[in-house]
């Protein structure tokens, strides 16, 4: 497999585009297409998806035929922990409140870099919480609770 794909970057981009196109085509099956005069809601998305599929195929074939750039390895720590930090924030915000959500995001996010020292991280979390509460809760009046709901 490795030897036959000459431009991994192009090949995988092609795959990605085709997958996106397929997802939109399959998901949009039920949408009325209409006619060219009276286009239905499904007309343009289907058209765009078909073109995307063609472009994806071009990319894919180019990746097979032409020698091109490879894909740099993914470093898993940031790739997993940065999104996780944001998810943690999103899940906790409603019932744990702003401060706890920020603490979670800071500590999970900080782990994206190995050997994160504890004390500066704690200071950062405290500082960011104070700033955010002042700015967003009191300043911009975001409808969130500062502390956990159940307290």
């Amino acid at each position: 497999m490795e030897a036959t794909i000459k431009g991994k970057q192009d090949f995988l981009s092609g795959l990605l585009f085709i997958a996106i196109a397929l997802a939109f085509i399959v998901n949009g099956r039920g949408l009325p297409l209409g006619t060219a005069v009276n286009m239905g809601p499904g007309y343009i998305p289907l058209g765009a998806a078909l073109i995307l599929a063609v472009l994806g195929t071009v990319c894919l074939v180019r990746g097979l035929v032409h020698a091109g750039a490879g894909v740099e390895p993914v470093s898993w720590r940031p790739f997993l922990l940065v999104p996780l930090a944001v998810v943690a924030f999103g899940i906790s915000l409603d019932w744990l409140g702003l401060v706890a959500a920020i603490f979670l995001a800071v500590f999970v996010g900080r782990a994206a870099i190995p050997r994160a020292p504890l004390l500066p991280t704690l200071a950062l979390a405290v500082g960011l919480s104070a700033l955010s509460v002042a700015l967003f809760y009191y300043g911009f009046k975001l409808p969130v609770s500062v502390w956990p709901r159940f307290l």
Binding site: V86, V106, S132, L142
Partner: peptide, 21 residues
């Protein structure tokens, strides 16, 4: 240190647009 701040501001920014998680 900077990137942690960016994460937090991204979170609050995304939430703040419609006040929706």
């Amino acid at each position: 240190y900077l990137f942690v701040m960016i994460i937090v501001f991204c979170c609050i920014g995304a939430f703040g647009i419609n006040n929706s998680v």
